[in-house]
């Protein structure tokens, strides 16, 4: 028994050796006729991520066709991991949220925000409350003061619509996180926020308006138990951010090519509409770094950007 196990253990080491000499893609430059290094995209969407992540092939195919380079989609679901991967250069272009996009650009000099959805220029969050809490809808930001002494949950720590902007508006209204009952929750995603407020675990929560609309229209929310009490003012949110290293790799005009490929997506063409729907977009429109300076400022204010 013992004797036969030793050679096996040794043979287990072989694959390690076999794996080692595989070429390192990040160091090889774009050769002439040699295999072109793929353009790697990723996304950390915050609504229907399972759909997007599992059907990403469609976007990759489209881009590959438009750009003439192989396109790879790498799945990441963790915000921090995605920003870090963008920073170290393993992701060339990522679909970021407002805050994560800024975090990513700040760590990669020269990175550019190139496109956003039509709805992202006018994005909103909604505060929702369990009806048993007795909280009534209000229109003025100062109405947020009614939330003092209630239990409250954000979505994910890094979410712009589920955390950053709501926290900013709360502070504008003079409500600090210590004013809530117990500790503020982080449900990790918008759907969980709905469910936890619906369950009454938290009396109040805040989330992306787009997700709220979609879920309530689909009848997946029990509107007798949970209702919107306030809609925030508009702000910029999701956008595509591209790494400047692609210019070295595929040429100076590559960023513009990607941009136009994204903007060109036409809801009238069935396959392209499918892609747009995955992102919950009517169209992609232009955006620029300066659109996110408010987010950067708030991010610094509440400590999400160091």
């Amino acid at each position: 028994m013992k004797r036969s196990f030793v050679p096996i253990l040794l043979s287990l080491l072989l694959p390690l050796a076999a794996c080692a000499p595989s070429p390192n893609p990040s160091t090889s430059s774009s050769g002439d006729s040699a295999a072109v290094q793929p353009f790697v995209t990723g996304a950390i969407p915050d609504q229907d991520p399972e759909k997007l992540q599992r059907l990403y092939g469609k976007l990759a195919d489209y881009l590959s066709q438009e750009l003439g380079v192989p396109v790879e989609y790498k799945p990441v679901t963790d915000y921090t991991a995605a920003v870090t991967a963008f920073k170290v250069g393993d992701l060339d272009m990522v679909w970021f949220g407002g805050l994560t996009g800024v975090q990513a650009r700040l760590q990669v000099p020269g990175a550019e925000a190139i496109a956003q959805r039509d709805i992202d220029a006018d994005f909103h969050s909604v505060f929702i409350a369990n009806t048993a809490s007795g909280l009534q809808p209000f229109n003025d930001i100062n109405g947020l003061q009614a939330l003092k002494g209630r239990t409250f949950t954000f979505g994910s720590e890094s979410s712009t619509s589920g955390r950053l902007m709501p926290q900013y508006f709360l502070e504008q209204a003079g409500v600090t996180l210590q004013d809530f009952k117990g500790e503020v929750g982080f449900s990790q995603n918008h759907d969980a926020t709905i469910k936890l407020v619906e369950a009454g675990t938290y009396e109040v929560g805040v989330l992306n308006e787009q997700v709220w609309k979609k879920r309530s229209e689909a009848g997946e929310v029990d509107l007798n138990k949970v209702a919107v009490i306030w809609r925030t003012p508009a702000y910029y949110d999701y956008h595509w951010v591209i790494n400047p290293q692609v210019k070295e790799r595929y040429g100076e005009d590559f960023v513009d090519k990607v941009k136009s490929a994204l903007l060109k997506l036409d809801p009238a063409v069935p396959e392209q509409r499918e892609i747009l729907e995955l992102f919950g977009a009517g169209r992609f429109i232009e955006t620029q770094n300066s659109n996110y300076s408010q987010i950067e400022q708030i991010g610094r204010q509440i400590g999400k950007i160091q």
Binding site: K74, P75, V76, T77, A81, A82, A192
Partner: peptide, 23 residues
């Protein structure tokens, strides 16, 4: 799986994020 390794954890997180219980 959550941080991009893929596999069951990744798929579970995706399905969980949109609360697809049957998946």
């Amino acid at each position: 799986g959550i941080i991009g390794a893929g596999g069951l954890g990744y798929e579970i997180l995706l399905s969980l994020q949109s609360l697809r219980y049957s998946q």
